[in-house]
Amino acid sequence: MRMAHPTRRHVLGGLGAAGLAGLAPRRLLAQPTPVSLQLSWLHSVQFAGSYIAQENGWWAERGLDVSLAPGGPNAPVEPPVVSGNALVGISAADYTAAAVAEGAPFKILMVAMQKNPFVVASLPDNPVNEPADLVGKSIGMALANTPVLEALCRINDVDIDEIEIVPTQYSAAPLLSGEVDCLLCWETDLPVAMAVQGQESVTMLMADHGYSVHSQTYIATEDSIANRRDQLVALLAGEVQGWTRYREDTEAAAQLTVDRFPDAGLDIETQTLQAERQVPLMFSDLTDENGFGWWTDETVQANIETLALLGRDVSPDLWDRSILEEVHGQ
């Protein structure tokens, strides 16, 4: 199963919000406009930047009352965004491309994970350090992710028929019990779980081997971009501010996450480690130079090439940087 399974949440009335915005564009300190941000998974440090923004009132001071809707394994992100229940959703370039192919009017506004978090995780005594090591091994993964592995093999000239694909649930148990040699998973979940259980693992980040798919991308509809631009700018500005603070102190971010969601069953050790491992995926020279969430024509081109291998025909105007430019221009 891929990580970015969605969820939703509802604005206390999308209509009311839109109406209010139309009448009174961005009145500071006025009644804040309720909007919803649809997260792609359960609450965790994966979305800590949002919690920091909320905790510090960085949205409130921009006139927004943002509710953060958790996702889950059976909660796609795209429907609430299309239906207007959520102003912005957290998706990934491949999912967004698929939705657009089905007629959804989405644009990618910001890219939180510059590097795709997919890894091949293995154990140190039988490691997969580079794609060629996959030959002759068994890999546990959701069959649905077969195109991802195919793309990786194509990029790196590995014969996928030499790899034994074992359909497994999304858990590290099949690797640890020796049922499979490696797993297709995210850098920030199963390897972290193994580490917390005291099991060292080797991870090969697919993004380091040519697999370029933007992840944790912020999407909105063309209609919102045209008519609720101020709210989008305010929402992303808060996010940028939140993630910038996150980078300064990931431990505090993890602590905040655990404190905010006492019922979510989060433990500080896992959250701290995950927060740490997210940093290299989210921040790069590119973002240092241009600001959080940035992309260039070159990274978009790399995405388009990888997406083509995944069977997605995508044009560069799937990405719309105008909102982000406004955010960073402030």
């Binding site: 359960l42 958790p70 979940d189 779980a193």
Partner: peptide, 22 residues
Amino acid sequence: VGEFTGAERGMGVLTIRAMRAL
């Protein structure tokens, strides 16, 4: 299973979390 559709709390939420976290 209803909690898999995006819930803040509950046994379903904890189950997903626990299984992923080994």
